[in-house]
Simulated scan of single mutants.
Amino acid sequence: MSRIQQSSVQKKRRPRDAAILSLLAVLIVFVFIISMNTGLIRLSPIEVLHTLLGEGSPQQKLILFDFRLPRIVISLLVGAGFAVAGCILQSLSRNALAEPSTLGINAGAGLAVLIFISFVPATTAAPIFMLPLLALAGAGLTAALIYFLAYRREDGLSPTRLILIGIAVGAGIYAIQLILSLRLDPQNYQFVATWLAGKIWGGDWRFVLALLPWILILLPFTFYKARVLNVLNLGEETPAGLGMAVERERILLMAAAVALAGSCVAVSGGIGFVGLIAPHLARRIVGPRHQILLPACTLTGALLLLTADTIGRWILQPSEIPTGIVVAILGAPYFLYLLARSKA
């Protein structure tokens, strides 16, 4: 297909792509409204609107602004971060099963945070803002170890070897997490067990502020690198033939994916499968071109995690199911489906 034909096809797709992104945004707003009304104390949409406009009662303001809105915003940010990280990893490895959880990156970030919160209670502002940095360190070391073990000079980075080593490293780290959690006192053990199951534990605006800078910096950087991802997705020879510094670009994008996943783990716990499901769903509805795929992943991941968190808070009221368990219930069958279809 010539460049003129490609340009014509892209122009025809733009209205459709814009409509899809708009629909995803509308769905997020719809679930957002439902989520604000989900909890032990119900707030009708009219009461929510009045409270947002400053006309609600003190109790309604406390429920909405101090408890529900921070968690909703964190769900949106974490879902977007995990989804984009998964999209980057799938494109770099050219493997449909790659995502931060299956590659063990989430486990590495979780181990660093677990070690920290086991010895330093997160009761002041400083430790909370340090959590993303600690998670980034744990995720980065884990990613470096997996990359070192999976890379071979003869054939480069094998997608199958990357997945298998990632699963093995992740399993080892999860075992270490369990050993460390058994040494905790009952109160901390209950918190850590729930956190490892994937409960969004950052329940106030401090956690939003700790995560927000990472999302605001890394997502635009990733969108800027969309064309690079398109080329890298073609294989090893094509980018090198075009004069691209393949290894440098791969390391930069890998670092962005690790930082996104690590910072999200710091406030959300061990939530998996978002980075697996969201890119596949987005790819099915908008195609593989990263200029539109990455924004679609952002919205799809945010919608998926917010929906899962809302279901987890609603289905067993007054108790709640950790968001990670709800996502796993949705994601495990899809993971098996992808595994069955994989030719690797």
Rank of each mutant, 00 (worst) to 15 (best):
Q5G: 06
V9C: 03
D17V: 15
A19K: 08
I20N: 10
V26H: 07
V26W: 08
V31R: 01
I34A: 08
T38K: 08
G56R: 08
S57Y: 04
P58S: 07
K61P: 03
I63S: 01
L69T: 15
S75I: 05
S91C: 14
V120H: 10
T124P: 02
I128M: 02
L133R: 00
L134E: 00
T142P: 04
A144G: 10
I146L: 06
F148A: 10
R152F: 02
T160F: 06
T160S: 09
I165S: 02
G166M: 04
A168F: 00
A171H: 08
S181H: 07
N188E: 13
Y189A: 13
Y189N: 13
I200A: 01
I200T: 09
V208I: 12
I215K: 05
I215G: 06
V246A: 02
E247A: 12
E247R: 10
L252A: 15
M254W: 13
G269E: 05
V274N: 01
G275P: 00
H280R: 14
I285D: 05
R289P: 02
L293G: 11
C297W: 02
T300E: 05
A302S: 10
A302H: 04
L305E: 00
A308I: 06
G312T: 10
S319W: 09
I321G: 05
F335Y: 14
L338H: 11
